[in-house]
Nucleic acid binder design. Structure first.
Length: 140
DNA sequence: GCCAACGTTGGC
DNA sequence: GCCAACGTTGGC
């Protein structure tokens, strides 16, 4: 299992909307960046990820699961772009903010901190465990 | 709303 | 294949 982090501006697509989609999940469309796309291509069904609110909140608010591997992005005519489908698993008990991550030992090399503009990021197992503990949420 | 960081595009 | 111009993201 590999861990990831998905960014979304809550004004465009929020955790609440993601939850409302239930087990159907939501196609993670709109990614137009190779690194982010390549990360999605590396995902397997069952992989877990954090759901992060950028701009507004700037915090990790929930845990999601990949339920379909990468396939053509229905919102693009360009065959270069594809995306996975994710569903909400559960909210975190205690949202973990960007500021929290910045000051927490062990998280200083998180992509969220170091590569702020990457919208779909890998998360290491250690980072996953650390953030889950901060979020008072089980890591599985 | 500003702007720094970064990615992409296209002319040469 | 370099690099200037441009566009976008996202923190502040």
């Amino acid at each position: 299992m590999t861990f990831w982090l998905f960014k979304s501006e809550p004004d465009a697509w929020s955790w609440g909307q993601q939850v409302a989609r239930g087990n159907e999940g939501e196609e993670w469309t709109g990614v137009r960046n190779y690194q982010a796309r390549n990360n999605m291509r590396a995902m397997k069904v069952g992989d877990r990820g954090f759901f992060y609110h950028s701009n507004v909140g700037k915090e990790i608010v929930g845990i999601v699961e990949v339920i379909r591997t990468s396939a053509p992005d229905s919102t693009s005519d360009d065959p270069r772009w594809d995306c996975v489908v994710i569903k909400a698993v559960r909210p975190v008990k205690q949202p973990v903010t960007l500021d929290d991550c910045k000051i927490t030992p062990g998280l200083e090399s998180m992509a969220l901190v170091k590569n702020t503009r990457l919208s779909v990021q890998p998360v290491t197992e250690q980072e996953w465990a650390t953030v889950c503990a901060m979020a008072q949420t089980a890591p599985d």
